[in-house]
Design a protein around this nucleic acid. Structure first.
Lengths: 226, 226
DNA sequence: ACTTTTATATGACAAATGTCATATTTTTAA
DNA sequence: TTAAAAATATGACATTTGTCATATAAAAGT
């Protein structure tokens, strides 16, 4: 079992507040797991009883709408924790988590996390701040969905993907979403999403090659986000 | 200055975890205020430096979209706290709060709340759970906005208003929103909102008399929320 | 009570978006 | 490698929704 002390990604999450002793203990409790692209980490309604620490890879958090379509609520990547909300609320998870690429994650049982809560005030504060950040982000997304048209939401989302997850050497977005996934992130039909991507391409805003998307005219895209 | 010990609404918020001593201390720090309908409690971007405890009345939390329109993110009522997120994140508030009716609120300075955080674990846990609840609610709203059409969102919202805030003796919704406000809650144009209300009326789903809205056919309305 | 302002309501039309059909390309699996 | 399946792309059209104009009703101020 690998040592949490030496794990770099820990530094990027609430876990950075843990002491050496706590980390040693954590290393004994946690279990590591590799997850293949497309695999489900947990499903809406499940009892997870702990949190996942993402060592590598990106996953999507989705929620099933009554109409049968999935909506992507959030993307979560290396260094972040998964399942904090439901653990604190003591409820089943309200979102499903599915890997967008091969991942490495560690699972930390609830009992362990709760003991950190009791003993380590800085850790609790970190978790709280993370959740508050998520809430603020959710408010922003809500207003976007409510007040912007699909074209503008697509522009916002493309910029968000590049800013948050970066680009490859060929300048294409690092996170590769299918048209279907992109559509379910901006809240529109797959065909509408494809159509708008084609339009953006014609306007020279982006370049498309297969699943790869390259942002060409950032400033023009930004104008749509205002 | 009224005593917090004897304040009933305290029982409905995170503050219920406070000890007698803490309540006595709280009563000395807090300031009470009445707020008229339509008055602004705080504005997006402001530094609030504390939280508000709502003793009576309802207010709306809004966020300004770049297009100049306000979106109502949430309604908050008697017994709830206001401004927790920004206090924990140590950031300006990301939403504006405006009274929908005459209100009575108490303001508790940040220093006071933070001292409760340090000393009273149950209080911190309560606040955390509240914020987690808000986050879950935000996820649900997001999916609604993204995947449902305007008509269905109106039905969902009307049911939500009745379930959450109740009805008067004449069966009309207790919280009275203008057509404009209702529209900015479901994310549509005021005219579309009015038109759909008229349609609902014609279909016998609701009754309208001035600003009053009475839900007549709950089960039919519920069918739209599926 | 009356004027002014604001909110609600509705029609007419334009624009945005969804749906269905179908073609093409890419990926997957035998 | 080839066949089958899935993803991407595009056209045609229907539906939904927004915008502007205007009418009516309600509320507010003098």
């Amino acid at each position: 079992m690998s040592k949490c002390e030496q794990c770099i990604v820990r530094e990027f999450s609430s876990l950075k507040a843990l002491t050496k002793n706590e980390l040693v203990h954590l290393a004994e409790c946690k279990t590591s797991r590799t997850i293949k692209k497309g695999e489900v980490i947990f499903e809406e309604g499940e009892n997870v009883n702990g949190i996942f620490c993402i060592k590598d890879g990106v996953c999507k958090l989705t929620k099933l709408s009554p109409n049968g379509k999935d909506h992507i609520v959030k993307l979560v990547t290396k260094g972040e924790l998964l399942g904090q909300r439901s653990m604190i609320s003591d409820e089943p998870v309200n979102l499903s988590a599915v890997a967008l690429e091969d991942m490495e994650v560690c699972f930390i049982p609830k009992s362990e996390v709760m003991s950190f809560f009791d003993k380590n005030n800085q850790f609790s504060m970190n978790v709280m701040k993370t959740i508050c950040g998520d809430l603020k982000e959710a408010d922003d997304l809500m207003v976007n969905l409510a007040q912007k048209n699909v074209k503008d939401r697509l522009a916002v989302t493309l910029l968000y993907l590049q800013d948050t997850f970066g680009k490859n050497e060929d300048n294409s977005l690092k996170v590769q979403l299918s048209r279907d996934e992109l559509a379910s992130m901006i809240g529109t039909a797959t065909e509408s999403c494809i159509r708008l991507l084609s339009e953006f391409k014609k306007l020279g805003l982006i370049e498309l090659s297969g699943k790869k998307i390259i942002l060409k005219d950032i400033s023009q895209l930004k104008k749509m986000t205002v």
